[in-house]
Amino acid sequence: MVPYLCCIILFLIGIYAILTKRNLIKIAIGFCLLEYAVNLFFALIGYKKDALAPIYTNVSQSKNFVDPIPQALVLTAIVIGLGTTALLLSVAVRIYEKYKTLDIKEIKRLKE
């Protein structure tokens, strides 16, 4: 149960960072934390205590394997996360070039 709770705490820290931080890079870090929390949670779902890695070996007695599907899905999710993080940071770099600041309070040319 404790690892699941840690995931939720990590998730909440990420949300906190996105909601309260003023620096674009810190928001991006908060987003990364959020993503790691979800990925970790997903990987934990497939975990079983004292189980083997899900690689087929020709053993006679039945073995306890961990569920391989969440691992495959998390790998996909990590790659997607890589793409979004890279895009987020590159947009942040372009914003810095244009505005000469990373403070969201000063980046508000769009209004109601």
Binding site: I18, L34, L88, V91, R94, I95, K98, R109, L110
Partner: peptide
């Protein structure tokens, strides 16, 4: 300037 600002905002919210 405006495009980048809109995109950043959209990305963070969309990804959440």
């Amino acid at each position: 300037k405006e495009d980048l600002e809109a995109s950043f905002k959209y990305q963070v919210i969309g990804e959440v």
